[in-house]
């Protein structure tokens, strides 16, 4: 790290340079790390003598498996049991077994396309909203990501810069994304200023059901598009350039080259992107929660927010019902995941 050349006079080297400080910190950390690891050896090596080298695999696996088992696997199983209980108590042993009552409650409906006719109308409103959101967000985003990826794959100036431009919002936290757009969309915000500047009337974007839905979808596309663009770009780059040259020689124009070379060869990547986007969109929650709070009314309330409110935020939490809803959500995700695994296997075999 030190920038001092080797031939520098001794006297100068004795002084503490900024680079030396970095060096010092690094060696202190490294020393502490090594000391810790050697110290652990004193405990772990006797264990190895006891169980033998080969069974040490279980030891290495253990910490991860404990946390995985306690906080992922066990809760997954518990969720099924929990969804069959009612009551206001938290601990499973204090709750009454109710069989499929929670599911029946969720599905007691006059007409599934009309949330008003359902006993648990909020669940169905959330379900409806989620379906609309998923269709438009995933559809719009995959299309835009594809266009962007194709454009970024061209011979352009400052390629690296433009690639990172589209990726930047992906890194922002959902809360920050929500706040940024809340600031822009508010009554006296930038967008309304532009609108009035062009001679229009200001619009209360987040207080109108349709506008709120529109912006929630658009903001989600803005925040996540770069991620899918990147995957599609990697897919595009794996298409051999020879194919395009051959197409050009055969007289195919730009559109034909895209339609008959790019699109078929990009299909596997496109499917992966589609499924990943679906899985993500079904779980939409945080940036919407910050941006609209689910409002106006219930216009932008989605499934995860329903689960969060039913199970935690409401005055009287109905955790059994929340569990039942999350089991249903899990089923939907499982279908998507299996579809992805199946597609992955298929493209690997191809």
């Amino acid at each position: 790290m030190s920038h001092t050349p080797r031939s520098a006079p001794i006297a100068k080297r004795a002084q503490l340079q900024p680079g030396d400080l970095g060096h010092l910190v690094k060696s202190v950390f490294l020393g502490a790390y090594n000391a810790l690891m050697v110290g652990l050896e004193l405990v772990i090596n006797p264990l190895q003598r006891l169980v033998g080298a080969r069974r040490m695999a279980y030891f290495f696996l253990l910490p991860n498996m404990i946390i995985f088992g306690v906080f992922v696997l066990f809760p997954m199983l518990l969720n099924f049991y929990y969804s069959g209980t009612t009551g206001t108590r938290l601990m499973p042993q204090d709750r009454t077994w109710a069989g499929l009552a929670n599911y029946e409650h969720l599905f007691r409906c006059g007409n599934f396309s009309q949330p008003n006719t359902c006993v648990e109308d909020m669940f169905w409103r959330a379900a409806h909203n989620t379906v609309v959101f998923v269709m438009f967000q995933v559809g719009g985003m995959v299309l835009l990501a594809l266009v962007t990826a194709v454009i970024l794959n061209r011979e352009i100036v400052a390629r690296g810069f433009f690639r990172s431009v589209y990726f930047y919002p992906v890194l922002l936290s959902p809360v920050v994304v929500g706040l940024i757009w809340k600031w822009i969309l508010q009554r006296f915000g930038l967008l309304n200023a532009v609108l009035t500047g062009l001679g229009g009337e200001p619009i209360q974007f987040l207080l109108d059901r349709d506008w709120a839905t529109f912006w929630v979808i658009l903001v989600s596309i803005w925040a996540q598009m770069g991620f899918y663009t990147l995957i599609l770009l990697a897919g595009l780059q794996s298409i051999p350039a020879v194919l395009y040259e051959a197409g050009e020689i055969d007289g195919a124009n730009v559109w034909q080259r895209f339609r008959f070379i790019t699109l078929p060869l990009l299909m596997p990547t496109l499917f992966v992107v589609l499924v990943l986007a679906l899985i993500r969109a079904v779980q939409v929650f945080d940036q919407v929660f910050v941006l609209t709070g689910g409002g106006p009314g219930t216009a932008t309330k989605y499934m995860v927010q329903y689960i969060y409110e039913t199970g935690f935020a409401n005055q009287i939490p109905r955790r059994g019902l929340a569990s039942a809803a999350s089991v249903l959500l899990g089923m939907v995700l499982l279908v998507f995941t299996l579809a992805q695994l199946w597609l992955g296997r298929k493209s690997e075999a191809a």
Partner: peptide, 22 residues
């Protein structure tokens, strides 16, 4: 098992995980 849970997000198991940490 690990691969299978790759896609199971915490939003699906909120209630039971909350129970466990409580």
């Amino acid at each position: 098992l690990i691969i299978a849970t790759l896609m199971i997000p915490i939003s699906v198991i909120l209630v039971p995980v909350f129970l466990v940490i409580t």
